[in-house]
Amino acid sequence: MGLLSRKDANLILDPLADNNPITIQVLGICSALAITAKLVPSVVMAVSVIFVLGVGNVIISLMRNIIPSKIRIIVQLIVVATLVIIVDQVLKAFSYELSKELSVFIGLIITNCIIMGRFEAFALGNGPWKSFLDGIGNALGYGLILVVVGFFRELFGSGTLFGIEIFGNPVEKSGLYAYGYENNGFMVLPPMALIVVGIIIWVQRSRNKDLIEEN
């Protein structure tokens, strides 16, 4: 790795797999369930969280020596809330339809436990560059799961990917639908997201036995 030292690279790569915030730490589940029925909102949510967590981690890290420890949680909250309001306003100004679709979930980034968790656990104790990498890595790990779940839910729930028909048109009975294939309506509902996340966790743990906790 020319650009990043091995340690730095691990900051990004770890959360993608063996320390994934969703599948290993099981954080940020609520938003993962709510917005993954389609791929487009999943990707937008992932990008928004990458922005908020990357920038937020740097800001918290820069301020880590001057934040009074008594009010540090409130300071973290203000930083997240500010960044989220910026994301929300920018979406409303430049991508109005999408901001309507994501509506309350953008606001819910504030309560995404991954963000406060990284601020508290990492950015308060490390320098800005490391914190930035850690933020990007965790947000990417979160986004990766979001996109995977969104992929399966949109494909089997609506028969489309990014809105493009994959299996043919269900109304005109073309493509696969001509042979009696039906979309699985359950895929579109939030419980199915939990099941898909569960399957990902299962697959991941059976491939890497180290991740299984001993009882």
Binding site: I66, P68, K70, I71, V75
Partner: peptide, 14 residues
């Protein structure tokens, strides 16, 4: 950073 006056000033500025 532990002083009360500092905490208050920090909060106000922020």
């Amino acid at each position: 950073t532990e002083k009360n006056s500092y905490t208050v000033i920090f909060a106000v500025v922020m």
